[in-house]
Design a protein around this nucleic acid. Structure first.
Lengths: 341, 341
DNA sequence: GGGCGACTCTTAACCGGGTAAGTGCGGTGG
DNA sequence: CCACCGCACTTACCCGGTTAAGAGTCGCCC
């Protein structure tokens, strides 16, 4: 049978469809009895509002967009995204907002997607991740005047509302901790150099190392994969003045780095310490378990979603600063072998 | 400025909006010049079709739904889902179909979601995963007459189109391989017992063990987490007649099991062999690297999406059988210590 | 030169909801 | 006793596109 419309309900109830509309939307203009009758009929015949018809009257699409310009492979590997998505969902779901997900090849495609989504009113707003230096998406979203929340540092968000955490603070804590353990040569295996947060972490890393008088503090950039993490580790360890500790930009690379160190007969942590940024279950299951920078990523996603929903309600929000990652010491860090003092 | 509609184009071109509609949809009824003019104006003022208005006339939502009744935690841990999603996306994206994702608490909520999606015409069809024994969702989807593709065995799909792979075959290959290496006591650390594929694998495991005359073949059910994988491993290894090999239902548990074995001073693979089902990068980075049952999960998702799109086009499709998982031997398997001859 | 068909474009109406502006009716107050 | 108010509900029309049916114009052919 054809799906029921308010006209069907109106006919059955013997009223006009406007009365039905008022009744179902709990607006004044109908008596309590009529309202009850209409609601009962609606339930009876299984009426559901047609979102298209609603949207035509300027209603919300009740959907939030997330376009990811990452290769599918990275997506599958990085627990970060699924955690972020689950956090976003946890907020959207109770509001009956859906998440519209699209994997795109690059930023150009991502911008096309935004144009289409917004033009067709398929989403009410978007969440933007992986900010680049001089990110073209920011300008485009501003031009489109599309509600957007950026997951990343406000300085690079070009005026868009940002949800962020202080990565510099986390880096400082980590390097200070390694310094306190006695490490004086610390390397950093970083992510993609084009990403804003990589740059911020790089800068903070360099700054804190120099503050502490640590001179050997190489930074190697990678694409976040285990393969590159392993290669970077080999390269750094094989240098003339190898570090006694490496801080990795994700746990995938840290796990790969651990394997490399073990292959090279380095005892972790006795000979060599490892810290992972982001703490998925894998940091816990490898031996030794990895000291990690723990963030509540689902909460992070939840904040982004909540902020976007507020924006959609017309609120003006400067941004939201989430907690910085906390250092969770486990078995992969210890004093260096040639501990002074 | 207000977003342009076909009425605006019509005004500028000096024709009726119907002419514009014909022109933009490449239907006969307008001259080539008028068509060109209209298209030019459309581009000029940045016109985009309003999907709501289209939907109102019975057009597609151009969206596929995926509701996941898994705790957020599992989602974040299991690479399976992101891989599946990225495969689905790879097919949907070129067709300008979006993926609408929703995480739900349980099957009851999932069914509500389907009812809402379908009632509101927010999606054109759905992909269903994690089939349970006597799965209530199947009946509901049939009642709703909603296009759906089930990722799972056809026998449990209740007549819905299924995309599946032969897990029994993969189990047989694995057990035969371990048997050939000399193993005579093999355990299985399985996933949730309510899931259809767990049951199928259990049955196949039992059958092949009995065929080969393997008598000690315990099966332990878990929730797929590393913690439970570790516990199950401890339990099995500590039994009076411990197995010389364990086949795990995912790689998370296999990695956890590896750690447990190493903690218990078992040398893998000299003392003890490990096989993981599903082969994420983690199987490769741990030492020793895990022998795994490799599946191309993105391809699996792509097939599901392609099948659903065909269904939407009105094709009748029996189902699609994907390749069975292939055994990829790595360093975690070898002959058992007490190899007989 | 009249009839016909093809082509181009129009008017009218529809999809399923929503809002603005009435209308009819009973009750109340001056 | 009439004016006025408010409730309950209606009519009319809108959103932005699609479709069906009709109308005007032109050329062609007999």
């Amino acid at each position: 049978m054809r799906r029921p419309t308010i006209a069907d309900i109106a006919e059955r109830a013997g009223v006009s469809k406007v009365a039905v509309s008022y009744a179902l939307n709990d607006r004044p203009g109908v008596s309590a009895e009529t309202r009850a009758l209409i609601k009962q009929i609606a339930t009876e015949i299984g009426w559901r509002p047609n979102s298209a018809a609603k949207a035509l009257n300027g209603a919300r699409a009740r959907s939030v967009g997330l376009a990811l310009a990452r290769p599918a492979r990275t997506l599958a590997i990085e627990p970060f995204f699924m955690e972020l998505v689950s956090g976003i969902e946890s907020v959207l779901s109770p509001h009956s907002f859906a998440l519209t997900l699209q994997v795109v090849d690059d930023h150009a495609r991502e911008i096309e997607t935004y144009q289409r989504w917004w033009g067709e009113r398929r989403v009410d707003g978007v969440i933007v991740v992986d900010l680049h230096l001089d990110d073209e998406r920011v300008g485009e979203l501003r031009t489109l005047d599309m509600p957007a929340v950026v997951v990343g540092h406000p300085d690079a968000a070009g005026g868009l509302t940002a949800v962020w955490s202080d990565d510099a603070e986390a880096i400082r804590e980590t390097v200070s901790y390694l310094y306190a353990l006695g490490h004086r040569r610390i390397a950093r295996v970083a992510g993609l150099p084009r990403l804003v947060h990589t740059r911020l972490r790089d800068d903070a890393f360099t700054a804190v190392c120099e503050e502490l008088g640590i001179t050997g503090h190489p930074i190697v950039h990678t694409d976040y994969t285990g393969e590159e993490g392993a290669r970077a580790t080999r390269r750094v360890i094989s240098s003339p003045t190898p570090p006694t500790a490496i801080v990795y930009d994700n746990d995938i690379m840290a796990v790969a780095g651990l394997s490399v160190a073990q292959e090279m007969r380095l005892n972790v942590p006795a000979d060599f310490s490892i810290v992972a940024w982001d703490d998925s279950p894998f940091s816990r299951v490898v031996r030794p378990a990895l000291t990690a920078l723990t963030r509540d990523i689902p909460a992070y996603g939840a904040h982004a979603a909540r902020t976007l929903l507020s924006l959609l309600d017309g609120d003006t929000i400067a941004g939201y600063q989430d907690e910085a990652a906390r250092l969770t010491p486990r078995a992969s860090t210890g004093p260096p072998p040639d501990r002074p003092a």
